[in-house]
Amino acid sequence: MVDYIVEYDYDAVHDDELTIRVGEIIRNVKKLQEEGWLEGELNGRRGMFPDNFVKEIKR
């Protein structure tokens, strides 16, 4: 799994989504079957977030 950095703020709409803020690092990200969404861990919580608000961290 890979990590992503947040490029744009996003406020969660549903309980299974993450609220993300610019500059945060989302860890252990995986792609979901639902197009346009990823799932990852942030601040001890796992949830979904839109893939166009983040950028993969290349290592």
Rank of each mutant, 00 (worst) to 15 (best):
45 R>S: 12
12 A>T: 02
8 Y>M: 07
55 K>P: 04
34 E>T: 13
23 G>C: 01
53 F>R: 13
43 N>H: 15
12 A>E: 05
19 T>K: 04
41 E>Y: 04
15 D>E: 13
8 Y>Q: 14
25 I>L: 11
55 K>I: 09
36 G>N: 09
28 N>Q: 10
25 I>W: 04
51 D>Y: 11
41 E>D: 06
28 N>K: 07
23 G>E: 01
59 R>M: 12
36 G>T: 03
15 D>Y: 08
50 P>H: 10
35 E>M: 09
15 D>T: 14
37 W>G: 02
34 E>P: 10
21 R>Y: 00
2 V>C: 12
9 D>R: 05
14 H>T: 13
5 I>C: 06
32 L>G: 13
16 D>P: 05
30 K>D: 08
22 V>F: 09
55 K>V: 09
45 R>P: 00
39 E>F: 05
32 L>F: 14
37 W>P: 00
37 W>K: 04
53 F>M: 12
39 E>H: 08
5 I>K: 11
53 F>Q: 06
31 K>L: 08
29 V>T: 05
15 D>F: 06
56 E>Q: 08
16 D>T: 14
41 E>F: 13
31 K>F: 02
23 G>P: 00
49 F>N: 02
27 R>V: 11
58 K>G: 13
29 V>G: 07
7 E>N: 06
58 K>L: 02
16 D>S: 13
5 I>W: 02
2 V>R: 11
14 H>A: 11
18 L>V: 04
46 R>T: 11
53 F>P: 08
55 K>E: 04
54 V>C: 09
24 E>S: 07
10 Y>E: 02
58 K>N: 03
17 E>Y: 02
24 E>R: 02
2 V>D: 11
20 I>A: 04
3 D>M: 10
2 V>T: 11
3 D>C: 08
18 L>K: 02
28 N>R: 07
46 R>K: 09
9 D>Y: 01
27 R>K: 07
13 V>L: 09
7 E>K: 11
39 E>S: 12
17 E>L: 01
37 W>F: 12
10 Y>C: 03
10 Y>W: 13
24 E>L: 02
33 Q>T: 14
43 N>L: 06
45 R>L: 08
10 Y>P: 01
22 V>R: 11
1 M>L: 14
30 K>Y: 13
39 E>Y: 09
50 P>A: 04
2 V>Y: 09
35 E>L: 08
54 V>G: 11
15 D>W: 04
32 L>P: 10
8 Y>K: 15
3 D>R: 08
53 F>S: 14
40 G>S: 04
22 V>G: 13
15 D>H: 11
34 E>Y: 11
35 E>D: 13
3 D>I: 04
30 K>Q: 06
14 H>L: 08
21 R>Q: 05
53 F>N: 12
1 M>I: 15
3 D>A: 08
22 V>I: 07
55 K>Q: 14
23 G>I: 02
8 Y>A: 13
25 I>G: 02
54 V>P: 03
53 F>T: 15
41 E>A: 05
48 M>H: 07
41 E>R: 06
42 L>N: 02
43 N>T: 03
44 G>S: 03
27 R>N: 09
16 D>H: 12
1 M>N: 05
15 D>G: 12
17 E>F: 04
